[in-house]
Amino acid sequence: MNEHHDSDWDDRIRGALDAEADAVARRHGDRLAEARRAALAERTASSAPSRWTVMLPIAASVAVVALTAALLMPGGATPEPMPMTDDLDLLASETFDLATDEPAFYAWLADQELDEGPERSG
């Protein structure tokens, strides 16, 4: 018989180990039972809803309600538009002529635009 498949030997070893485990259970029955009770209580405690589990949905609901109320509230402070009337009047004025202030600059600028025209199109 192949000694690596000696099932009688393996069974004998398992039987001896089982007997030892039974002896442990007999010697320490109360302590083992109390240990199991403590472990299972740990499971109950860990599966109970935590403070965050309870508080998070409430906090989210409150935040949604507050945000909705803020958006729907009439007469909210809206920023005033920039006053552009003065600038438009100035630009529309017949006396407003930039070229009169810096004639040399605008003449030079006109020349630059003429020179760069073909390059841009090309």
Binding site: L17, E20, A21, D22, V24, A25, H28, L32, A35, R36, A39, L40
Partner: peptide
């Protein structure tokens, strides 16, 4: 619980 009861004394050994 049944699992713990079964494995416990063997684990002690």
């Amino acid at each position: 619980e049944a699992f713990l009861a079964a494995v416990q004394p063997r684990a002690v050994v």
